[in-house]
Design a protein around this nucleic acid. Structure first.
Lengths: 205, 205
DNA sequence: TAATGTACTGAACATGCGTTCAGTACATGA
DNA sequence: TCATGTACTGAACGCATGTTCAGTACATTA
């Protein structure tokens, strides 16, 4: 028999397959039967372990939220190198292997308005706020007139390649989460952060 | 009997109620029976007019796409005053009465990856690209190293209050689509467009 | 006036859903 | 060795869904 905390239990397998399917198609579009089939178990077992489909969803939410709690903790402990003020997302997303369903699931969490997503969004905002305050204190960033809005703006710019990946890829012709697209996006954003919009040396402002 | 092009036909009523419900809860979460009840007709009539639920969804998509086609046409004809380079969304959204379901439906269209949403996204991007090129030609905007990415960046910043309305409201404490929030967001964005991030006069860059 | 066609209803149908449950297999503890 | 409990199956249940269809009402055309 497998131990309770062994992540190879059928329970964990069900949860992982559900995470993948939910990330790809959304929880409402995925049936208990399909999750069960993907996990190689019976539909009844899914309910046995999670009580209901909603319970499974909550378990997946909690699992993902836990992963990000860990990342936030590592970031604030300085174990994750957050290169500059706007790359929290890059630092986090770089932690997952290429095919990981977690970024896609995070996207759904953030856009759905779920409690778990709201929580992560708040956490993320607080971390971003702390970062900008540190940079301001060190004189690396101007104080800014509206710190709350500015932080939200920076955070959202950081998040947008994840949230609008497909649409941006379609329109600029390169995956903004891929190696090339990420670089181009980051450079484009930094150009504006540095020089503003109205001139490379500001002569037209 | 009402004429075919009278927007008070039962067909139009069904379409409008569907638009509202789809915008609020998403097409998958809304049943044909609920739409029928909201429109004051029988479920059978919904199918009679639109062939299927999917057909109704397509009709709503087409209707909304048509509305935005009209707005794009008016904008490029100069009938809509697009104050500065980044306020296409503001100009468009200002055209709808306060309780209109169209912005909410647009949000779903843009985020869902549907064909209709992709089409609007492309159209929007093309319009943004044309605008920035005009501004560059007039010397009001620096040329920029990566015009495609910069346009996408500006466009997305413009769109983000619509796409992340609830999350931003939760975190900054004011509805970014409301009167006060829109102003604060616009000012925050313009501050960065003007001065960049690293100093109000650029002295720290 | 009679014929035709369109708008519309309401009951019914098939399907697929989440969930239940009786029962099997098997590991653990007494 | 026996009792207990947990993991698990597979058939079944009840329900809500999208859709169908026979039938009614009524406007239009001839």
């Amino acid at each position: 028999m497998r131990s309770v905390h062994d992540d190879l239990t059928a329970r964990a397998v069900i949860r992982d397959r559900a995470l993948e399917l939910f990330a790809a198609q959304g929880p409402d579009a995925v049936t208990v039967r399909r999750i069960a089939a993907a996990a190689g178990v019976s539909p009844g077992l899914v309910i046995h372990h999670f009580g209901s489909k909603e319970g499974l969803r909550a378990a997946v939410d909690e699992h993902v939220a836990g992963v990000f709690d860990g990342l936030f903790a590592r970031a604030s402990a300085g174990e994750l190198d957050v290169a500059d003020g706007a790359s929290l997302a890059e630092a986090f997303l770089g932690q997952f292997p290429p095919g990981s369903p977690v970024p896609g699931y995070l996207r759904r969490l953030l856009l759905s308005g779920d409690a778990a997503g709201t929580e992560i969004f708040r956490h993320w905002f607080a971390a971003s706020r702390a970062m900008t305050e540190t940079l301001v204190a060190r004189g690396l960033l101007a104080p800014g007139r509206d710190p709350e809005v500015r932080t939200a703006f920076l955070m959202v710019n950081d998040l947008v390649p994840l949230l609008l990946r497909d649409q941006l890829a379609d329109v600029v012709g390169v995956d903004p989460l891929g190696p090339e697209g990420a670089v181009r996006w980051a450079e484009g954003v930094l150009d504006i952060y540095h020089g503003g919009l109205f001139g490379t040396e500001g002569e037209l402002a």
